[in-house]
Design a protein around this nucleic acid. Structure first.
Lengths: 243, 243
DNA sequence: CAGTGGTCTAGACCACTAG
DNA sequence: TAGTGGTCTAGACCACTGT
């Protein structure tokens, strides 16, 4: 059940990644692409809009669409992707160790929640190990209101695979906040953090496509192993256009 | 020179921010919005697509578009916005101190550049001070090939205001990478970083809309003052759809 | 079933770039 | 001037949600 513009977008993205459309060259014009794929222009434009957003191309009015040359290096740590998905696309030698799996309310202070409003949840604590080095400690709170039970095997494998695949949940969007803080003794030990060194904490709240809040997460990263890449387009600030 | 869907997007965003469309309520349906603004449905859909991308709304097929309630808290540190723009929208008591302004090649090691390919540039070093506390040290390299001269006043005020306003440059997009590293003695002193504490470094390369590379930047943040917020939508990983 | 959003079309007109 | 991308339309059909 894929739309035409989705398939076209994937096809062009593949051709860019395989250098069939080389970096710094122009894509065929929109009307040429219409003929190529046998679709109308607005459909082509939807595909190109996706490629633009993802940093594959840059459009220049009156000239054409240029292939940019870095989207394959700077893999998107922004966006919502699971650890397992990242691993597979980066073929790293990694594994996950389940530390804890129990019922617990979401801690109100950490996520700045109303103290009177409790969220019963399943708490999962997992250590991510790459090349025998502990890199990330993931602390997930899955709300009981959405996820009633969580099998141990699912927690050990991929949470998202279970949630999307087995439970059929449709994950929509998330808010994230990145800060740098001193680790707790527990975290310091698990991650082998040197004394007096801070850790990077990514806190997020994840929602389903129907806007139901269902997950709180704290990802504690060793600072020396942390890296976050992003591609951003300039947004004109409201009212600053004098044209 | 604004398009209809741009104006409609701004109008709806305003109504959301002023709670005329309250959080967790539905927007008028697309056909109602067509009548309201007197435009065709695809035009309305383009406006709604922008609101969706920016986290103002969530669309649910068969039901409607729900107003989300956090887009006004989590102001976008992602995206490309200048320090001055951020300040104005957050009304902070802040100022900028110009530390250095001189000609220099972009340092090849720091930005992982080819050693034989030199980029002559204007180097600007500025300290950002909020409530008399040094928060960020910005190190900008503006390529001579694009920006031939940089007046001292422009460096002291807003770089982007000068580049976009005075020079008429059209800034397109940027790549960013966030890491955590030990500060240099110079940085430690300027930012009042305690001994053995790391700093957060945001390195970026900025391009014009015509894909010309024109700026390298290092932003050195005091770790205890650093915070990065983001809104992200779930991207299905290629090939993982079994529907 | 009626109402919603999701996809797609064929064609129009405009703005910009280049020879 | 021809070719490019940017905007917009009116209408069609589909998929999904609720009653």
């Amino acid at each position: 059940m894929k739309s035409k513009y989705d398939l076209i977008q994937q096809d062009i993205a593949n051709k860019i990644m395989h250098h069939i459309y080389p970096a710094n060259s122009f894509l065929p014009s929109e009307s040429q692409l219409c003929d190529l794929y046998g679709v109308s222009r607005e459909t082509i434009r939807k595909a190109l809009a996706l490629l633009l957003e993802q940093g594959y191309i840059q459009k220049i009015q009156g000239k054409g669409s240029i292939v940019l040359d870095f989207s394959r290096f700077t893999f998107p740590v922004s966006g919502i992707a699971s650890f397992k998905e990242l691993n597979q696309s980066e073929h790293m030698n990694s594994r996950t160790k389940l530390i804890k799996l129990e019922d617990m309310n979401v801690p109100t202070e950490v996520f700045q929640l109303d103290k009177d409003n409790l969220f019963p949840a399943t708490y999962v604590e997992r250590l991510r190990i790459v090349d025998s080095e502990p890199i990330v400690l993931d602390r997930d709170y899955l709300l009981k209101s959405v996820v009633t039970t969580l099998p141990k095997v699912a927690a050990e494998d991929s949470l998202y695979e279970y949630l999307e695949g087995k439970l059929g949940l449709d994950i929509g969007y998330a808010t994230k906040m990145i800060t740098v803080e001193p680790p707790t003794p527990h975290q310091q030990e698990l991650l082998h953090v040197p004394d007096n060194k801070d850790v990077v904490i990514v806190r997020s709240q994840t929602y389903l496509s129907d806007t139901t809040l269902f997950q709180f997460t704290e990802s504690i990263h060793r600072a020396d192993k942390f890296s976050f890449s992003d591609f951003a387009r300039r947004k004109k600030v409201k009212g600053s256009n004098r044209k």
